[in-house]
Design a protein around this nucleic acid. Structure first.
Lengths: 343, 343
DNA sequence: TTTAGCACTCGACGAACTAGAGTGCTAACG
DNA sequence: CGTTAGCACTCTAGTTCGTCGAGTGCTAAA
């Protein structure tokens, strides 16, 4: 589709623009040395590239900037493989040498490291409990009408919520049920808990307890928490303010606002990481107008072969794709290895 | 110290400036009607107030703005008592009618409401577990070398952390210890847990278990989490961007950066709420240069008579003190009542 | 004591101008 | 025929300059 020379010039323009955030002119490309043509020739090619939709011109007498399509082509075909700098490698080594236990904590910390390494904003979708299985269930009365329900998963994550308990249900009754549940439900995947409760345990439970109906309601409430137990962590949100394209408060406002809308972000992250490997969403591909000038690069991480979370980097469309992709690739792989290691 | 007329004029200036964010001139004060003097008279008083340090002049031919000292005097002596608008009352009623259980969740939600009502940023220091007592302790092995330690407090808060367990310690041994601990430590305040463990339980434990040393290390690690189990919640951070004084990215940057530094914020909140009732910290009183142009208004909330957390509002020094103080006062009192109610 | 009057100051705003970066086109070149 | 030098043209960013108006401080009159 594009000639070799056009590819060279497009690469040069994108690279330059990523570095400078200023429209790139034919002269500066020519002077770089790696494209051995005069400004005039480059101008001709640039006009062609613009016609093809890879470049845009802010106004007549300015240089060119990559269009959405230009970035997409760059990411898909032109971006160089990026090896990590020794400094970056060192940061990553230091991180994985740390002694951190809980999976969620590890992942969260990885997000922080990532935002520091890249100077962009990292978005981390914590390990979901959906596919892990039940390790332990507990129901602790706090006072006459409330109890704390605790679910511990096989990966060591703890979810808790407060539930209200009808006065008729006695403590000993509750204990009996909890014991029964632990015997029957240990090892069952979290997402199957409710159906297991209804189908298998229900009948047996009726024999043990008096207030079956009330208890089922309590358990229902208690297990509710298990299904959406995924948390979102942001790090380096203010890095956005360093980008020259967001020097204007009005332009960042909508982005920062979105950062406070956890559910929306979660949905976006989940959508973005649908495929395997590294995913790049450029500008309007993000399905939210606040991110129209941003790119989101995501990767998933897994525990024991099961993808459990997503880690992403958000920056301006003019972001250092090659470097970020390189870092994210290594980091997500290491994270997976680290989380799946025998503790 | 100030004449009645000076107080009137100062009040008028502060009120006007809070509303408009523009330097206030003598003419506009005169025209308001509530100060029945000509611009010339007011100018003379303004010159005096400036000499006394209550006002400042951005440049010669501009109006006056309140100085730090001016705000302080306003807050301490001039700010009118503020009754909540019917709309505000309604929001608060709706909030406290909601069925929320966990104390932390309630408080966090209160912070959200607060930032919505005020259009400033709310900072919430979650209920600390320090003064609550132990309801239940649990140590669940996850695999050969790790276990999850869970602490449930009398208020229903759950803290968990992953600890590593030496290979020599057997599961049954661990269970025995946990049972012993629950029998002995239930009801002990969280902050006394460690000393209680060492002084009272230690000896008895030695009789029960083989690997005393190793187990003590595990327990030590497990109980570490209890002492600082206070969490920080921010809401409405982007409201800062709506303030005209922060229209410039450079000026908000340092503030938003500070929002990411949880420990620093926690320290500031703890320091700010040292006294009782509503505390107002104006500008540089905040001990952090990022907040030099901000004011922080805080109140504490309590559970069962024990102050457990702090709720605060951060805005520009030019913030609506009267309204915010009014809202915060009511909200913190209601929050206390709500959290201390028999569930 | 208060106020009207007045000269003065200073920033905000807009118009006019300039400099410079970059373009597209044409014609010459190898 | 592809490439390049040359040139007229365009458009923005930045600067200067003058004007306007809000606001002041001071003086003198009420």
């Amino acid at each position: 589709m594009l000639t070799e020379r056009q590819r060279m010039i497009l690469t040069a323009i994108v690279d330059d623009y990523i570095r400078s955030a200023e429209p790139v002119g034919s002269r500066s490309i020519s002077k770089r040395g790696d494209v051995g043509y005069s400004p005039a020739t480059i101008r001709n090619e640039m006009a062609d590239l613009e016609e093809l939709g890879f470049l845009e011109q802010p106004h007549t007498s300015a240089g060119r900037i990559p269009s959405h399509k230009g970035y997409r082509y760059y990411v898909d075909h032109l971006a160089p493989l990026n090896l990590l700098s020794s400094n970056e490698l060192k940061m990553m080594k230091t991180f994985f040498a740390e002694k951190l236990n809980a999976a969620e904590q590890v992942a969260q910390h990885a997000g922080t490291i990532l935002s520091h390494m890249t100077n962009y904003t990292s978005i981390l979708l914590g390990p979901e409990v959906f596919h892990t299985s039940l390790r332990h269930f507990q129901l602790l009365p706090i006072n006459e009408t409330t109890a704390v329900a605790i679910i511990v998963t096989s990966t060591g994550q703890v979810e808790s919520r407060t539930v209200s308990v009808p006065a008729e249900v006695s403590v000993s009754e509750m204990e009996r049920v909890v014991n029964l549940l632990n015997r029957k439900l240990a090892g069952v995947p979290i997402y199957k808990l409710k159906t297991a409760l209804y189908n298998e345990i229900g009948q047996e439970m009726q024999r043990y307890v008096e207030h079956f109906e009330e208890l089922m309601k309590v358990l229902d409430e208690a297990l509710e928490g298990g299904s959406d137990g995924q948390r979102l962590f942001l790090s380096g949100t203010t890095n956005m303010l360093n980008q020259p394209e967001f020097r204007d408060v009005d332009k960042v406002k909508s982005i920062l606002d979105l950062f406070e809308e956890t559910p929306t972000l979660m949905r976006m992250m989940a959508a973005a990481s649908s495929g395997t490997g590294i995913q790049v969403r450029i500008g309007t591909e993000n399905d939210h107008e606040a991110f129209a000038n941003c790119s989101l690069i995501t990767a998933t991480y897994a525990i024991e072969g099961e993808a459990v979370g997503t880690i992403g980097i958000l920056g301006p469309t003019r972001m250092e794709y090659a470097r970020v992709i390189g870092i994210l690739d290594i980091l997500s792989k290491n994270l997976t290895k680290f989380l799946s290691r025998p503790h």
